[in-house]
């Protein structure tokens, strides 16, 4: 599966079926991160049910503290 993540083309195996599994494979800190899929912000509550397919564009933002 080819995904575009933060503007970069990346290849993933077919086991990365949904956003939750993708974030796990990237070791992303999920409680501090937000995900945009094809132009929409996807709430964490539906990461597991948000299926990914080749060509999908994602932005992953991991926030840090301060402000």
């Amino acid at each position: 599966m080819d995904l575009i993540i933060n503007g970069e083309n990346k290849k993933f195996g077919d086991s990365v079926k949904n956003i939750e599994l993708l974030l796990d494979s990237l070791s992303v800190k999920k409680e501090k991160s937000a995900v945009e899929l094809n132009g929409k912000i996807i709430d964490q509550k539906i990461w597991r049910s948000s299926e990914l397919k080749t060509g999908d564009k994602l932005e992953i933002v991991t926030f840090v503290g301060g402000g």
Binding site: K32, A34, I41, D43, Q44, T62, F63, G65, G66, G67
Partner: peptide, 11 residues
Amino acid sequence: DSAESKKLFIE
């Protein structure tokens, strides 16, 4: 000031 709140905001 917390990363978790920033995530809540954007979601």
